[in-house]
């Protein structure tokens, strides 16, 4: 995973609808292979295409505007990424080029999936998110600030997510450095709760 740009400067595409679910970000019918690539084309298919079959574009959809065809930042409403746990939603966004999503709130599973794929989810008050849409925005992950039009707003992020994103860390590699602790815990647990442990198929 590549480290998050320090800083990221880009024009934020405003997409302020609430409850945008992962079915909308990538409909199930757009998930055609067991791989993780080739998903960007199906991203937001119900909104992006006037005809999802011919892929005739819907000219009103924000990411079809000339300014946002290479958008790296989305400004979104409340509960963005709710619904299905499909990580394909984040894979599609990341493949399209999205590096950060600034929103009022996020679906919890989606938020976790973002962090695992190098996409920074930022939660800010709705008024700030509405104000920054359509403007050049500077995101400084180290300083935890979002700046635009001469104003700067601090955002909160847990230190775990910050560390993973800033350094582009692989979570599995990192956890395996604690393999001894995991083994010790498992041995003790096997004695305490033997019913948890089952024979292999």
């Amino acid at each position: 995973m590549t480290p998050f740009p320090q800083p990221l400067i880009a024009k934020a595409a405003p997409l302020m609808a609430d409850n945008v679910d992962t079915d909308l970000i990538i409909p199930s019918r757009e998930i055609k292979t067991t791989g993780r690539t080739g998903l960007a084309e199906g991203m937001f298919a119900p909104w992006r295409y006037a005809d999802p079959i011919t892929r005739a574009e819907n000219p009103d959809f924000i990411l079809n505007h000339a300014d946002y065809r290479q958008a790296q930042i989305l400004a979104v409403g409340a509960n963005f990424g709710c619904g299905s746990s499909r990580e394909h939603a984040v894979w599609a966004l990341a493949e399209f080029g999205i590096k950060a999503i600034i929103g009022e709130s996020f679906g919890s599973i989606f938020r976790g999936n973002c962090v695992r794929n190098g996409v920074l989810p930022i939660t800010l008050d709705r008024a700030i998110v509405e104000a920054l849409g359509g403007h050049d925005v500077t995101i400084d992950l180290a300083a935890q600030t979002v700046s635009f039009k001469g104003q700067s707003h601090a955002f909160a992020i847990d230190s775990e997510a910050k560390e993973m994103l800033a350094h582009g860390l692989d979570a599995i590699d990192l956890s395996l450095t604690q393999a001894d602790a995991i083994d010790a815990w498992t041995d003790a647990d096997r004695a305490a709760r033997p019913w948890v442990y089952l024979e292999q198929a």
Partner: peptide, 11 residues
């Protein structure tokens, strides 16, 4: 809880 991660999350 197995351990704490370096950044303070729970494993």
């Amino acid at each position: 809880k197995v351990a704490q991660t370096t950044a303070g999350a729970d494993l």
